[in-house]
């Protein structure tokens, strides 16, 4: 009996992203379709999201022409596939501060946003470094910083320090410091609501990009391989991966990498009229399927 309905919603994609960007060391191994997605969690009187995507108005054209991002759609039509509006969203968990995860915060006027305090403070600290350290600023949009100021002033930005249990009933935040970014976090949903749940889902942000990060290249001899891009340490990424796998009792299918093209093959899904993939992970009692 699930407490929450959970969907992974694609809102754009890159048709040919280098695999080496997703899996550490996978050089000269071609490209893969890279979906951009966010997660919708609905139930128990709450509508929550994990990340909110990027702001097409600000840099959609750059992404489209220079980086091959395609088919961006605003949250309103994307969420409508699940009968939700952006105004319905009351809680957003920001796994980290990159543009494609927190770039669209202004489209959710009623939401309170949760982010690790360390992600913000180190983000600001990075800005104080001299120009030759600018690699550390990759993927960060100055406009997101300005929008974050507004959120904070409205009291809709909550800085979290470390792990938090039951931020919503059965929804936990887990800090993953100095991994993909300074203050990344992942979200765990205990979907039966019990403290020692056997119905766990983990939303990994960019701590993993694809199942290869969780099982390696040889299914018969699994290993953890870090993502291809991190400003923290590979060691921390691997340790966090191990922690996440433990958090789902070894069932790595339940660790959801939102950039994983193959997610749709592991769970019920459909392609919307806009050509976007909608994947259904769980249905709460009384909720109708959105993929059948």
């Amino acid at each position: 009996m699930s407490k929450y309905s959970i969907w992974v919603l694609e809102f754009a994609h890159v048709p040919d992203y280098p695999l080496s960007g997703l899996v550490y060391g996978a050089h000269n191994q071609g490209t893969r379709r890279l979906p951009y997605c966010y997660v919708l969690i609905k139930g128990e009187g709450h509508v929550a999201m994990v990340d909110v995507g990027y702001n097409h108005k600000a840099y959609g054209a750059v992404l489209a022409t220079a980086y091959g991002a395609r088919d961006w759609h605003a949250p309103r039509p994307v969420l409508a596939e699940c009968g939700v509006t952006p105004e319905d969203v009351s809680t957003v968990f920001l796994t980290h501060s990159h543009f494609d995860h927190m770039g669209n915060i202004e489209d959710f006027p009623n939401a309170t946003f949760y982010i690790q305090e360390r992600e913000l403070s180190k983000w600001v600290w990075t800005l104080s470094l001299e120009r030759r350290f600018r690699w550390l600023m990759l993927g960060i949009d100055p406009a997101d910083i300005l929008r974050t100021v507004d959120l904070a002033r409205q009291g809709r930005l909550v800085c979290v320090n470390g792990d938090r249990q039951d931020l919503l009933p059965g929804v936990d935040l887990h800090a993953a410091f100095d991994t993909h970014t300074y203050g990344s976090m992942y979200v765990r949903v205990r979907n039966d609501g019990t403290p020692h749940s056997k119905d766990n889902w983990i939303f990994a942000g960019d701590l993993v990009y694809t199942q290869e990060n969780l099982r390696g290249h040889d299914a018969n001899d699994p290993e953890y391989i870090p993502v291809g891009f991190a400003s923290g340490s590979q060691f921390n990424l691997l340790m966090t991966t191990g922690e996440m796998v433990k958090g789902v009792d070894g069932d790595i299918r339940r660790i959801i990498p939102i950039h994983d093209e193959l997610l749709k093959e592991r769970f019920p899904s459909r392609i919307t009229t806009d050509g976007l993939c909608l994947t259904e992970l769980a249905l709460a009692d009384g909720e109708a399927s959105r993929v059948r």
Binding site: Y17, L63, Y67, D100, L138, P142
Partner: peptide, 15 residues
Amino acid sequence: FEMVEFQQGCCGARR
């Protein structure tokens, strides 16, 4: 002139 440094970054490999 770019507002965001995407190059070789997370989810933004330049074509």
